[in-house]
């Protein structure tokens, strides 16, 4: 979707207020069956973020003595990877390359019904309402998404020559904020885009070289253990990623895995 100022549904810039019906997934805890509850929200400003709209709804619920909606959020600047939400069938909502906290209410118009669901994946169980347990990602990182030595302070710029293309590709992969939108969008609930970003990030740099083989093998094994699906290269993850991580990282992961499994001693 290209930036289009004429498309008033997506990029209407002037301020307006709207009344909305928000259909939210409510679930008391991980054991509860859960279900959708519809709420009416009034006088929502087009300049609010999506999370601020839920804040307004929550304040209303608290005043009414009801349980507020639980949802993940932290920086609200699009960089921490905490916010999630499957909004009208799209992880992080209708805008491309965008997180839920940076989705503004001008993406909607007066009278809209918005359906909000948590990320759905067996490996991301719902904790409460819209919050899911994404600690599976932490355990994948713990399986090898690091370098074991302390690299110390930043060294002089050119003391360790790094191919510019590799540095750029590594940086692009390191943009991954681990939000899990790739898993939410994938028909197989596969975590391959996340994993491939983490593997590519380190495999392309000299600091990642000593543990290159064991890293990819251990991280793939952990990903499988967590219960994510396998990748079928459909491309839905790439189109959904708020940081536009390229699917070419998945092909690089496949190469790393094939090479490492064929040449590792174990």
């Amino acid at each position: 979707m290209k930036f289009d100022l004429n498309n008033d549904k997506l990029y209407r810039m002037e301020h307006y207020n709207m009344n909305l019906t928000v259909k939210v997934w409510r679930q008391k805890n991980s054991k509860d069956k859960g279900g959708f509850v519809s709420y009416q929200v009034k006088d929502i400003s087009s300049e609010m973020s999506f999370l601020e709209m839920i804040d307004v709804l929550n304040e209303k619920l608290i005043v009414e003595g009801a349980e507020p909606i639980a949802f993940d959020h932290d920086c609200r600047e699009g960089i921490c990877g905490q916010c999630s939400l499957y909004i009208n069938g799209k992880p992080h909502g209708p805008w491309m390359a965008n997180t839920t906290c940076q989705l503004h209410m001008r993406a909607f118009k007066d009278g809209d019904t918005i359906v909000v669901e948590p990320w759905r994946a067996g490996a991301f169980p719902v904790i409460k309402d819209l919050m899911v347990d994404r600690s599976a990602f932490d355990r994948i990182i713990q399986a090898g998404g690091y370098i074991s030595v302390n690299t110390g302070n930043a060294v002089d710029g050119n003391s360790l020559p790094i191919n510019k293309d590799h540095a750029d590709a590594s940086f692009a992969a390191a943009m991954c904020i681990g939000c899990g939108a790739c898993v939410a969008a994938c028909k197989n609930s596969s975590a391959m885009l996340f994993l491939s970003a983490k593997v590519s990030h380190l495999a392309l740099l000299p600091q990642g070289e000593p543990e290159r083989k064991s890293r990819v093998l251990n991280m793939v094994a952990q990903m499988d253990k967590e219960g994510f699906g396998a990748c079928t290269n459909t491309g839905a993850c790439e189109a959904t990623c708020p940081k536009e991580i390229s699917i070419s990282n998945i092909a690089r992961l496949n190469k790393e895995y094939l090479f490492s499994s064929l040449t590792s001693d174990k």
Partner: peptide, 25 residues
């Protein structure tokens, strides 16, 4: 069969076709 079992609870709204062709799915 394995991939289809990984979602758990299905979404209420469809993902649509953003970024993926119908035949790839």
């Amino acid at each position: 069969l394995s991939n289809r079992s990984k979602r758990g609870i299905a979404y209420a709204s469809d993902y649509g076709n953003r970024g993926s062709k119908w035949y790839s799915r």
